[in-house]
Computed example of a mutant assay.
Amino acid sequence: MKRKTLLCLSLVAMMMTGCADQMYIEDVTLSLILGLDLDEDGNLLVFMSSPVFNKEAKVKEEKVEVKAVSIRDSRELFDTTVMALTSGSKTQLLLVGKKLLKQKNWIDYIDPFYRDPKNTVTTRVVAVDGPVSDVIFFRPKDKPRLPLYLANLVDTAYRRNVTIKTTLQEFHEQTTEKGITASITELKKDHKIMLTGTALLDEQSKYKLSITPNENKLLRILQHKTKGDFPFTISVPLDSNGHDHWISFSTPRIKVKTRVRYDNHFIFDTDVKMRVAITERLFPFNVRSDAAKLQKSMEKKMQTDFERLIKKTQTKGIDPYGFGIYARAYKYPEWIKVQNQWGKAFAKADVNVKVHVTISGMGTIK
């Protein structure tokens, strides 16, 4: 009898607590998109996009811009404009303008996301090539609400490996890990919003370089991230005439293995094994009888693309692949000496990529 009484009292207490803490959705302004940028005078601009749940409102999305000294300061300014109390617990995207990304210590502005437990760390971090205001105040008639549209756009492109997807939690890990530099999604607004690839940051989290969607696929492979789709369209060198021989293929299976050596500098050997299925061929070729020649040409082209991307990042002194993690794991005594300047050490490293292609599918037409 006593146990039943205690159970009833506990249930009543829980119900009373829930009632006391409840808040109607009409009384909350959910910040689904938060944008950060700089104006012409270098002042911080903070943007917010939130849904409107009021039945009488004709426009179901509220967008606000304020000039503030920090994100926390902007919340108070938002509360003087919006109809309800601002909440960052459901933020889907954090848009950061390139102008701000090029500034030293810009990362300090996102401190509230990690410090306040009411905020979420699953927010997608996205670089904007151009003014953030162009994206925030964009109202496409043939698309759903901007937060839903952008979140789905990033997620779909990530599954296709067109760009990377970095949450605030992952961004924090990348910026505190000495063996890798951060990379985030990049987009721009022209006559429509489009993903342009991936923005690569340096050891101080400043913007250094942008890579295309095709280069992002190579980045993901070198990161040993081989899930999702990896469709390629390349021009293979089949003869000495310099003619373009275009071929498209999917890669249902990719295996990557990296080894590290040290001889006055770091040497990385990465083997990439790709099992491919041809999806398009724009030149006459008997794949069944001469597959080895085609495979060798594809390997040569892919290897050149890998080398070009690696050289591009080494020139900027960044390591978005995480080769530094391998250096620390297998050559720790040498890593210790350069851990605080890994970008410079990686720029002097030799990175050898060997590609092995096996054609496993030719389509119904041989």
Results as ranks from 00 to 15, higher is better:
Q303F: 05
T176F: 11
T279V: 06
A84Q: 12
K293Y: 07
V236S: 07
Y24R: 01
V260P: 08
I110T: 02
P131L: 02
Q204F: 03
T358M: 12
V52K: 10
D142W: 04
F323N: 01
F268M: 09
K189Q: 14
S250R: 03
H356F: 08
T81W: 00
R145P: 06
D269L: 15
C8V: 12
A20P: 01
G324S: 02
N54A: 05
V351T: 11
E170Q: 14
I193E: 11
S235V: 10
L201C: 03
R308L: 13
K104C: 12
T181F: 04
L222M: 15
K227T: 09
Y114W: 04
K189H: 11
T364A: 13
P117E: 03
V52M: 10
Q223M: 13
D271H: 12
V69D: 11
P140K: 03
L11H: 01
D129P: 02
A182I: 02
N119S: 03
P112D: 04
Y330H: 09
V357Y: 07
L32E: 15
L9H: 06
R288T: 15
L30F: 14
K143A: 13
K311E: 14
L294P: 02
T17G: 06
K348M: 10
D271R: 09
T198D: 07
D41K: 11
L9R: 05
R72D: 14
K55G: 02
F285G: 05
T91R: 10
S205L: 00
I234N: 04
F230N: 11
M15Q: 06
H356W: 05
L77I: 00
L77M: 15
D37W: 07
W342A: 04
G88A: 12
Q295S: 11
R124F: 09
G130K: 07
V287I: 15
I310E: 09
I221P: 10
W106H: 08
R3C: 08
A327I: 05
A345P: 04
V96T: 00
D155M: 05
H243T: 10
F268H: 05
I110A: 03
L85A: 10
G322S: 06
E173A: 13
A291N: 07
E76M: 09
R159G: 08
K217Q: 14
F78R: 05
W335V: 08
T167G: 00
T122R: 13
Y332M: 04
R259K: 15
T196P: 08
E215V: 01
T5M: 14
G228D: 01
L95C: 07
Q22S: 11
T175H: 02
